[in-house]
Amino acid sequence: MSHSPCEISLTVNGEQKTVCAYPMERLLDVLRQLGLTGAKEGCGEGECGSCAVLLNGDLVTSCLVPVAQARNANIVTIEGLAKNEELHALQKAFLDCGGAQCGICTPGIIMAACHLLNSKPQPTMEDIKESLAGNLCRCTGYAQICEAVAQAALRFPLLATTAGNGAPDRNRA
């Protein structure tokens, strides 16, 4: 790392955090060191999407984001979706539809789906397939994942967040 460690503040799942990290450390590693191990490293080069999180409402692969870029940002990870044991609509739908098999890609895919529904609450199946094409899943062949996203959108037509920061608080069923 080219610089020495410094203090970086960021909001993670609604909580203010200050971490001591090298500026070029990967956001993925910082999150995992915070105990948030839901985001996974599948490839380390932004190809598989299993480390996907929301950064100020944008979908990012956290293995490609230097933590310096997340300074003062609002981060949402898979751990931030279910609040007080109440599952997010997408999580429920993934359970019902068989959207998770081995589960390793699931956190990233749910975050990608969350990003889609935030911007387009009523997506077509083509929208869903396109928006998840950056997330690799080797188990499911994607059909039951796409069905889960469609079901979440159908069951909960007012999913979209209006906050614009990707915070999922309004996504409660």
Binding site: L36, G38, I78, E79, Q91, L95, A100, I104, I110
Partner: peptide, 21 residues
């Protein structure tokens, strides 16, 4: 019957513990 996957809840919430976790 389509009963819920035993470890499904841990998988959709990110709580499932894989070796690197």
């Amino acid at each position: 019957a389509a009963v819920p996957r035993k470890e499904g809840l841990d998988k959709v919430t990110g709580r499932a513990q894989y070796v690197d976790d």
